[in-house]
Design a protein around this nucleic acid. Structure first.
Length: 226
DNA sequence: TAGGCCATCTGGTCCT
DNA sequence: AGGACCAGATGGCCTA
């Protein structure tokens, strides 16, 4: 479903040489035609060299004309700006890689999907949201059943809405998170009893492991079901 | 071919 | 000042 195009590796802030992409002075370099690694290595080198050359020329010719100095300073400013931009790009790239790594970690702890059914970013976040909700509800129901054998089937979302300690299920909405009106499997759906929770999990388990080819139909609040 | 998803670049803003 | 964070823009890849 979702293609994974890039194998991440921990990137270093170190600027190193070489790449065919550096020649591009345009603001947008294709991530495919010019790999991030190559670009990272290349652009910085190209940016730094002029600085070194400038320093050497300045040492040899301290009495250069004002106009010439201004021009050189202009070049230096440009080089400094470009170097900062390249470093910022590298940081941003690493930041996004870390973010993606965190998302991968999150995917690993979610109910298993086949390799070829990797959840998208938004699906991962929404599914995790609902997964946590369902787990917490399961625990809460278990506690209720232990404490009150005569537990009545009061709608969970109503109880939650009066519980300041736990995230209110009634606060779930279509815009920020899954809701009953958006998806029948969402947390705020009328899961009115422990059997409903069990149904939820049985259904989820069934679809996740048996009908996983259409997993997105069963992941509450996914993009396709907003 | 359109739409979805993604990686990357970029400039602005906020924080330390 | 420099780094982190963010959102918009851009272009590539893939699928229906």
């Amino acid at each position: 479903m979702v293609q994974v195009k890039t194998e991440y590796r921990e990137e270093e802030e170190v600027l190193s040489p070489a790449s065919v992409c550096s020649g591009s002075s345009s603001s947008h370099l294709s991530s495919q035609t010019c790999s991030s690694d190559d670009e990272q290595l290349l652009v910085p080198a190209a940016s730094i060299l002029p600085v070194q050359e400038q320093d050497q020329s300045a040492a040899k010719k301290p009495r250069r004309s004002r106009a010439r100095a201004t021009g050189k300073n202009g070049e230096v400013v440009m080089v400094v700006k470009k170097t900062r931009r390249v470093k910022a790009n590298n940081r941003e790239r690493n930041r996004m890689h870390h973010l993606n790594s965190a998302l991968d970690s999150l995917r690993e702890v979610l109910p298993a999907f086949p390799e070829d059914a990797k959840l998208t970013k938004i699906e991962t976040l929404r599914f995790a949201h609902n997964y946590i909700w369902a787990l917490s509800e399961t625990l809460r129901l278990a506690d209720q059943l232990q404490e009150a054998p005569s537990f009545s089937a009061t709608p969970l979302f109503i109880q939650d809405s009066h519980s300041p300690a736990s995230p209110s299920a009634s606060s779930w909405s279509c815009t920020s998170s899954p809701s009953s009106s958006c998806d029948s499997m969402s947390p705020s759906s009328p899961a009115s009893s422990s059997s409903d929770i069990l149904d939820y999990w049985q259904s989820a388990d069934h679809h996740l492991h048996i009908n996983h080819s259409q997993h997105h139909h069963l992941v509450p609040g996914t993009t396709a079901y907003m």
